[in-house]
Design a protein around this nucleic acid. Structure first.
Lengths: 111, 111
DNA sequence: TCCTTGTGCAAGTAGTTGTTTGCACATCGT
DNA sequence: ACGATGTGCAAACAACTACTTGCACAAGGA
């Protein structure tokens, strides 16, 4: 996944409304924007914008059905974001481990 | 971790410069802002702003040493972000699994 | 004691984000 | 055919973000 795509995923998830939308779509399956906006303190248009941000990140897709548009969670891109974090975490652990080894290999200071 | 903290972590990681800063600090250990700005196409002040964003997310901390301020990676908050993603992913998998079960339980259509 | 270097603060600017309102259009059920 | 409902587009706005420049201050080394 390109850096830009990773940008979009992290940016999309940095907003609590958007995380909530993803959670709900994951738990309950597809919904329309109008439906999703019913229990959120904002207009349908605001929700649509959030869904578009999620769509740009590949976390959601839209499917037209008659006059309705159903949004569905597509959480695959989460895997790339998790991979970046785990990789970073692992490198950090390795570095800690190296430091620990150096400390242990150092001769005791005279006392 | 509160939602706000999760906001800050995801927002901090949504910028490629900041991911790069974290990576470098994780790989090489502490550096000053001036040092970090040397191989980035922006001023020291811009780097300081990025480091502050990372600091707000708890991904970096600062320690004064004489006239220098060394920034160090503290990747613990990554764990919470990963947890949110894995939890969401798992729920999605469960939902998929439920659907699959339903599909498998359905009698074959006549052909 | 200078000169260099690392830092901190403040103001300013350009661009982006989150949200609303208003209106036009499409579709469904009666 | 008509009213209710779901959608799309565009303008407007405040708030925020990413940067820059300029300057003052602190600390280390010759």
């Amino acid at each position: 996944m390109s850096g830009d795509a990773l940008d979009a995923v992290f940016a999309a998830l940095s907003d609590p409304t958007r995380r909530r939308l993803v959670s709900r779509l994951v738990r309950e399956g597809p919904h329309t924007a109008t439906d999703l906006s019913r229990d959120l303190p904002m207009t349908r248009q605001a929700v649509v914008h959030h869904l578009q941000a999620l769509g740009d990140a590949g976390l959601v897709d839209a499917h037209r059905d008659g006059r309705e548009v159903r949004y569905r969670a597509t959480p695959e891109p989460l895997a790339d974001a998790v991979a970046w974090m785990l990789d970073t975490g692992v490198r950090w652990d390795e570095r800690l481990q190296r430091l620990r080894t150096q400390v242990e290999a150092r001769p005791r200071p005279p006392r």
